[in-house]
């Protein structure tokens, strides 16, 4: 039904100002059918603002965002017929029960309470007869998640959906997202939990100060960064200190630790192999390393390190 080559969500130089404050300066990325897109960035970087803009809750100040080829603000109602959304902070009407709210959300989205809904309620172990007033943060998130997962949509938007869930429920969440992916749905997942993003997402966008600083698959991103190598050799390796593409060298008696730019991996390995390797351990950069690389620097210029 959905053309794999046409993006479901297309964001092009999106901007949003609140008065003089530029919350979003330049957001550009696409999401295709069957893709889980991880949206990461620190607090206040503009993740939720981006999401609220593409939901038509906020009006863009510049640039363009379309979902299913339609304008996110003007055609919000048409678009919302085919999306499901779970906000970061789920607020539920205190005097309604969880079950009532799930049904209401489904009806508002032109869906119905189905067997799938009951199944999800059971899986997430939610008591739907309790008033929302008595729910914890995790339970409120479950209500929104159950409603979202039982909605038949083409684009699912989750804004830090698992921040209040326990590990068991987090796993159920991940399984459900895999099911969506299998069925060719598109998913936008904003998250802080990098292991979750690493595990689930095909492509990742890193946002910082209202700008997307990097997009691509984790593999592609890794290419841009360094592999950490711990090596033990019979012969000393002082040349490492002056080799190009090699950083943070710690020469030890027993073990040497170094970071290597991906592009120089081959030459470094060739050099090391001549030094009679006793043991070697290479760690690919984790998302956390990537993340920290973009955020740790105070000067804001991640590019000059490359």
């Amino acid at each position: 039904m959905l053309n794999q080559n046409v993006p479901i969500l297309h964001i092009d130089h999106l901007q949003k100002n609140f008065g003089k404050f530029h919350a979003l300066k330049n957001i550009t990325f696409d999401i295709y059918p069957g893709e889980v897109f991880g949206f990461i960035g620190p607090n206040g970087a503009g993740k939720s603002t981006t999401i609220r803009t593409i939901l038509g809750i906020l009006r863009a100040s510049g640039g363009r965002a379309t979902i299913f080829g339609k304008d996110v603000f003007k055609d919000a109602v048409e678009i919302h017929k085919r999306i499901a959304y779970v906000p970061g902070d789920v607020y539920l009407w205190p005097n309604l029960t969880g079950g009532e709210i799930i049904d209401l959300f489904l009806k508002l989205g032109h869906s119905r309470h189905t067997l799938k809904t009951d199944e999800l309620i059971k899986k997430f172990q939610l008591d739907p007869t309790k008033k929302a007033r008595t729910y914890s943060k995790g339970n409120r998130q479950k209500v929104a998640l159950i409603a979202a997962f039982s909605t038949k949509a083409d684009l699912y938007i989750f804004d830090e959906p698992t921040s209040g869930l326990d590990p068991l429920n987090e796993e159920i969440f991940q399984k459900e997202v895999f099911n969506l992916k299998k069925n060719g749905k598109a998913v936008l997942l904003s998250s802080h939990i990098l292991s979750e993003v690493e595990k689930m997402c095909d492509n990742i966008g890193i946002i910082r100060n209202g700008e997307i600083v990097e997009t691509g698959s984790l593999a592609q991103m890794r290419h841009l960064t360094r592999t950490t190598i711990k090596v033990q050799t019979q012969i000393q390796t002082p040349e490492l200190l002056s080799m190009s593409g090699v950083h943070n060298v710690e020469l030890g008696n027993n073990q040497t630790v170094l970071s290597v730019d991906s592009d120089y991996l081959e030459s470094v390995m060739a050099y090391l192999s001549q030094k009679q390797i006793v043991s070697i351990q290479a760690t690919p950069p984790t998302l956390e390393d990537l993340f920290l690389r973009y955020y740790d620097s105070n000067n804001g210029g991640s590019n000059n390190e490359k």
Partner: peptide, 10 residues
């Protein structure tokens, strides 16, 4: 925040 999900529906 009560109306946020409502605004995301049709």
């Amino acid at each position: 925040g009560y109306l946020e999900i409502i605004h995301a529906t049709p």
